[in-house]
């Protein structure tokens, strides 16, 4: 059987909060989602049969709450001004001349190292990555995180967020490119002092 619901806040509150925070990027919303999750769990505590751990059960409820929240928040929100975003697409590439569309000399991607596990051991990488995720437009960050972190399919995202496949493809490209550009500035250049 599970623990006494009165102990849930102390036992699971912080880890559920972190789970929500990386996905919604807002402390107040993450706190509200943890509260909604624990109250929903309290109402259905009799249905918890102990097939999974209590933590997994609570995280499953939270995962649904997060998805519902993001869907309500971002469904049919107009895509940002195209001129601003196309500037993001152009950044780092030659604008004209015989090398138009190729990497500009000051923006050449650097070598991050071939072993992702070695990179993930670096606290500086995670700090910069979190900072860079916070700098992405909210909807872009949430779509990228849901797709990559939680494996929500492209079809599901298009249906639930009212996006066309082209909108989604461009949004994911911009998320990847902006994160990469940002990490070059805030992690690599900081580490190498350039």
């Amino acid at each position: 059987m599970g623990t006494d619901p009165r102990d849930w806040v102390d036992k699971y509150g912080d880890s559920l909060f972190r789970y929500a925070l990386v996905r919604v990027r807002d402390r107040t919303i993450a706190e509200d989602l943890v509260q909604d999750t624990l109250l929903a769990a309290l109402r259905q505590v009799e249905s918890f049969r102990g097939d999974s751990s209590e933590r997994t059960w609570l995280t499953g409820i939270l995962r649904h709450k997060i998805f519902d929240h993001l869907r309500k928040q971002f469904r049919n929100v107009p895509v940002q001004d195209d001129d601003v975003l196309s500037a993001v697409d152009q950044r780092g590439f030659e604008a004209e001349g015989e090398w138009a569309g190729h990497w500009a000399p000051g923006s050449l991607p650097t070598e991050w190292g071939r072993d992702p596990h070695a990179i993930m051991e670096q606290a500086e990488f995670w700090a910069a990555f979190n900072e860079c995720l916070s700098l992405l437009p909210r909807r872009m960050a949430s779509l990228f995180v849901l797709h990559v972190m939680d494996g929500v399919s492209a079809n599901e995202l298009c249906n639930d967020f009212g996006l066309t496949p082209t909108n989604l493809r461009v949004t994911l490209y911009r998320a990847r490119k902006q994160l990469r550009d940002c990490l070059e500035q805030r992690w690599i250049k900081k580490a190498t002092g350039k």
């Binding site: 880890s15 972190r18 789970y19 925070l21 990386v22 991607p109 991050w112 071939r114 992702p116 990179i119 993930m120 990488f125 995670w126 990555f129 979190n130 995720l133 990228f144 995180v145 990559v148 972190m149 939680d150 990847r176 994160l179 990469r180 990490l183």
Partner: peptide, 21 residues
Amino acid sequence: HQIACLEEALGFAADQPERLV
């Protein structure tokens, strides 16, 4: 390589969000 690394890191942080925050 860089975008593959970003996604591997996010996948890693799915179960360990404390890495990020």
